[in-house]
Every structure is written in structure tokens, then in C-alpha cells.
Amino acid sequence: MNESMLCTKTHEYLLEQDGKYEVGITDYAIEQLGDIVFVELPEVGTEFSKNEAFATIESVKAASEIYMPISGKVVEINEQIVNSPELLNDETYEDKWFVKIESKADQIEFADLLDYSDYKEEIE
């Protein structure tokens, strides 16, 4: 996990990189889900509002929706995890982001996001 990421209480993370944001789910969420066997991502160009479901992930046991931490437009998706969802369980594999978004979100949208240390406290 990257110290500069922001997290939601529903275990998504947001990481700013080169003016875009990477969105994914936290290591804790992956560990809780267990074996991940299916990932469905939106098409590039789709716009989402904050807290809107943008992806579906399925473990052996159940399907879960993944929500946008802030509003934005999808500019890139991680095809690797769609083709090989089990990579998300691979501790040696690093590219676990789901989508990259461009966002014009204002500070209000960031208000309820937790910084990494607060998130860690939250899950302990």
C-alpha cells in the first residue's frame, strides 16, 4: 500500500498520479474477499459520480460492487485484472489498480476520504 493514497470506508483507494487518479481496492479488502475470480470494469470514457458503483468483483463466495471515491471519467482500465482476476491475490503482483480517472472533484468530495494511517486504524 502506498502511504499517499486516500481510502473509503468501503475499502476503495484513490491515488493521485500525474494529474490523474488511480482507483482500486485496498489490500485489506482483497484479503477479506479471498480468491478473486471475476472482475468487470466499465468502458473507457464512462463518467461516474462520487459513490456510484463502477465495477463488480467476485470472490468464490459472492459478488461485490466497487464504488467511486470521487467523481470522474474513466480514461484507462486495467485489462490484466479482467483477464486474470487471480493476479489481485498474488502478493508479488503490483499493478492492482482497477481504473484511472480524470476528475474535476472539488474539496468537498474529498472530505470523507481517509488518509492511509486513518484507514489503517479504521480496519484494526
Binding site: G34, D35, V60, K61, N89
Partner: peptide, 8 residues
């Protein structure tokens, strides 16, 4: 117990 290591 639902799983010890991994269901698969």
C-alpha cells in the same frame, strides 16, 4: 471455518 488458506 469458511476457509483456512484459499477456497480454490
Amino acid at each position: 471455518p469458511v476457509q483456512y488458506s484459499s477456497i480454490i
